[in-house]
Each structure stands twice: as C-alpha cells, then as structure tokens.
Design a protein around this nucleic acid. Structure first.
Lengths: 148, 148
DNA sequence: GCAATAAGCTTGCATGCGCAAGTGATTTGC
DNA sequence: GCAAATCACTTGCGCATGCAAGCTTATTGC
C-alpha cells in the first residue's frame, strides 16, 4: 500500500481541511469575517510593532501581494484596520488594527480556541497534546515566520 | 498567552498550507495537474469499485457538486477520466480513471510521497511517525470518508 | 548627480470555487 | 397510478485569488 509518510501527509491535509471548513462557517456566521481576515488580524497582533507592511503580510500568509491589497480594502471600509505610512520610505503602507479590529480578533480568537478545544480535548491526554505541539513545531521548522 | 490547543490548531493549519503550497508548485510544473485533480484521481482509486458519482466525490473532497462538474470536464477532455452511466439510475454519472489517468496518478503519487518523506524523515524517529499517524487518525475521527 | 535597477503597491485579466436556480430522473404518499 | 417531493447534475452569477504589467519611490553604480 502506501507508506506511513504518505499516509501522514494525506491525513494532515484532511484534518486541516476539516478544521478550516468548520471554522469558516462559524466565522462568517458569527463574526462576519473570513478565516483569512482573521489570520491577517492575528499576524498583525503577533508582529513586533503591531503593524505590518503589505508584502510582509503576504509572505507570512502565503498569499500574493495583490490579495493583501484586496483583502485590506474592505476591512478598512468596515473599520477593522487602518493604514500608516513610513516616514523614511514612502513606498511602505503599514496595515494596523483599529480598536474595532482588535475587538473582532479577540472574539474570533475565542471561537477559534473553542473549536481547537473540541478538536483535541475530548480524545487526548494532556501530555499527548504537548507532544503533538512539539511535533508540529518541528514540521514548521524555520522555513517561515511562525504564527504560533 | 494562547493555550496549547489553539497553538496546535494554528500550527496544523500552517503546516498543511506549507505542504500544499509546495506540492501545488511541483504538481503543476512536473505533472500538469492541480492538487485537487490529484486528490480526485486518488479518491477514485481508493473507492470500492474504482468509480464514484459526482456527489460522492464532492462529499469526500469537501467541495460543492458544481466544482466536481467543472473539474471533471477538462480532465475528460485531456483523457484522464471518463464517464460511466448507471443502468438502474439514469441520474448517476460515474467518474472513472482512464489508463492515462491511472498512470498520471501513479507519477503524482510518487511526487507526493517524496515530499512527504522530506517532511518527516529527516527529523523524525520511526516510532514518532507511528504515533503521529495514530494521532492524526483520531483527529479525523469517523466524521468523513477517509482517504488514508 | 543621474541613469539604471530594484522594491512596494495597485490594477486588468483569467481561473477556481460556492450558492442558488434550473432540468431531468427517481422515489414517496396516498 | 399520479402528484409531490427528492435526488443527481448542470449553469449563471459573484467572490476570492494568482500572475503579469504598470506606477511610484528608493537604492545602486558610476
């Protein structure tokens, strides 16, 4: 049949898909944002100075720069994020979270954590969760700016 | 900060994204198919009778029925899949893999396995891989038709 | 200094996808 | 038996996204 590496990779994709799908539904219904909008806010909050340039966001989120432009526009309109310019480099336009944006992130993060708990807590021992975290940490490696 | 469940879920999404992105690039460059087209072929191969109806495929792949219709059309045109009708129920249109489709799947599966090996083998002990498989298996649960 | 190159961002175009409506085939209720 | 409901599939429409081209601003080479 197929080796264990392959099986693991397939299951990894499947589990992530399932989780993301469920999350997407609850996010749009309860908070009115998409998973990617949530991740955008989260990346900003986890950044060093609470703001990120568009290309920086694009790299961290694994999307193109144009996607960031088109994601940020409606979020500005709704008041979740604002823009700041760099004094030194007029090319840079930072995305910052407004108070409303931070509030929205906080609510969405609660939903996220709730679903994460459902995923693990019922069927897992505490030390297994620890070990799983360490395994995932190694899989992420140093390849990208880590979110968690 | 954030609890371990949340961290794990974030990392899970991140690892899956990374893997899928890399896979997508190599698939389109080397095999000329998308990840979803690969998964479609794989679902058919893993099915009981080497063929699946469109709604069946949609459920297993977590996409809408219209997506299957639109994915299958170009794959038929290129000769990777064919269609079979059910004698009993004229509504059903099964998707089957042609010889070329099975060949393509086989090549793509080799690429997939190679990348899966890269992901795990360098940094993992054998029994860790075992344990990871069991953990992912529990995360998938009985919620959906399993692919691996 | 100034031309050439590069970086950050935006926009036009094409693609992939979900949702809702439509069509034809089958099952159900009575 | 037949009308109504259900199911499998397709199609029109809108949204999200990547790629390539273009614009503006910085940097580099000389």
């Amino acid at each position: 049949m197929t080796d264990l590496y392959t099986t693991n990779a397939l299951r990894l994709l499947q589990v992530a898909d399932n989780f993301r799908d469920g999350l997407s539904g609850e996010f749009s219904a309860v908070h009115g944002i998409s998973v990617n909008e949530f991740l955008l806010l989260l990346h900003i909050k986890r950044s060093a100075s609470n703001r990120l340039s568009r290309v920086d966001l694009a790299k961290r989120m694994h999307v193109s720069a144009s996607t960031i432009t088109r994601m940020a526009a409606p979020m500005e309109k709704v008041g979740l994020v604002g823009r700041e310019v760099d004094q030194r480099d007029a090319r840079l336009i930072f995305v910052v979270a407004t108070d409303a944006g931070q509030e929205k992130l906080s609510e969405a993060l609660a939903t996220f954590s709730k679903r994460a708990s459902y995923l693990f807590s019922d069927r897992w021992e505490v030390d297994e969760v620890d070990q799983f975290a360490s395994m995932l940490g190694r899989l992420i490696g140093g390849t990208c700016d880590t979110l968690a």
